[in-house]
């Protein structure tokens, strides 16, 4: 009887452990089945690499949206990662203890704000800032609703996550290791750069991946500031139309247009695959970094 229970428990545990994996699989399969209607009509490459988006005419080129997603996300990461790491370095290595204590709850609060709040704030502040200050500085015209505005908002939204995780990574670096470097006559900055950052490299990478994954899928705030024009952006000041915004804006509407919903499912599937591909890539890098240090 006890043995039976044990066996049952083991089975149950295995099933539960496998659930997240299965879930991913189900999502992919589900999306695939729903978007099949459109796959039969044209080859996949037509969707991925065509920038013609006119549902009325039955043209569903996803390139502008894929490009929009990549642009916004990469801009956000280029902004967020360095700033977050520097902030975390400051808080963990330089700031007095009380400042660190005070910063932590604020960071966590920021991480928990609903994204509409960020979006509204973006419309009020970031969009005009990009349109009236940054664009003239760069010598171009922009309404402000742009990739850059989206990137900035997204960066601000991912800061807290990356900072939070990076701080934990730094806290896990033993103090005696820092002291070993300091005792050789290294300055604090040298110690941070060569020892703390290196020791934490993996963790920081993981933090960035976490941020990136969130950024890829973030919908609401970006949608509010990015302009939502379905063309491939050519500069940071152009508007863009990321995949999540496309899906959120259009799902449930204009469903009378043939194959429209299949196209949106396709968009979701592509987004999902981008996130997956990115995670696999990141894991690969992580493993390589792991081999190099420690």
């Amino acid at each position: 009887m006890r043995l039976l229970k044990d066996a049952l428990a083991r089975r149950a545990m295995a099933v539960i452990a496998a659930l997240p994996g299965l879930l991913v699989l189900f999502i992919v399969i589900g999306l695939f089945l729903r978007s099949k209607a459109i796959l039969g009509v044209e080859p996949l490459s037509r969707f991925l690499f065509s920038s013609a988006w006119s549902p009325m005419k039955g043209e569903f080129g996803l390139l502008p949206f894929i490009a929009g997603t990549m642009w916004v996300t990469l801009t956000a990461l280029a902004l967020a990662v360095p700033v977050s790491i520097l902030t975390a370095i400051y808080l963990s290595e330089y700031a007095p203890r009380w400042a660190r204590r005070a910063a932590q709850p604020v960071i966590d609060l920021l991480a928990g704000l609903p994204s509409v709040v960020y979006g509204a704030w973006g419309v009020i502040l970031v969009v005009p800032f990009v349109g009236n200050v940054l664009a003239p500085l760069a010598g171009v015209y922009s309404s402000g609703y742009s990739i850059l505005a989206g990137g900035i908002i997204l960066a601000i939204m991912t800061f807290p996550t990356i900072i939070h995780v990076t701080l934990e990574v730094f806290a896990s670096v033993p103090r005696a290791l820092r002291e070993a470097s300091l005792s050789l006559g290294a300055t604090k900055w040298e110690t941070t750069r060569h020892v703390v950052l290196r020791k934490g490299a993996q963790g920081i990478l993981a933090a960035s991946v976490l941020g990136f994954s969130r950024a890829l899928g973030e919908t609401m705030a970006v949608l509010m500031v990015v302009g939502n024009v379905p063309s491939v952006p050519r500069s940071l000041f152009d508007p863009g139309y990321p995949l999540p915004a496309l899906i959120a804006n259009n799902y449930g509407e204009m469903m009378s247009i043939p194959r429209y919903d299949a196209a949106l499912m396709m968009a979701a599937l592509v987004l999902m695959l981008i996130v997956l591909a990115f995670n696999v890539l990141a894991r690969g890098i992580l493993i390589r970094v792991e081999r190099k240090v420690r």
């Binding site: 290791l177 470097s181 050789l184």
Partner: peptide
């Protein structure tokens, strides 16, 4: 001041780099 003294700690604290780089670090 610190470089005038070498420190051995309770548990060895090797820097996250190669054997060579550990010695060459200072």
């Amino acid at each position: 001041i610190r470089r005038k003294m070498g420190l051995l700690s309770q548990r060895p604290q090797v820097l996250p780099m190669s054997i060579y780089d550990n010695v060459a670090y200072g």
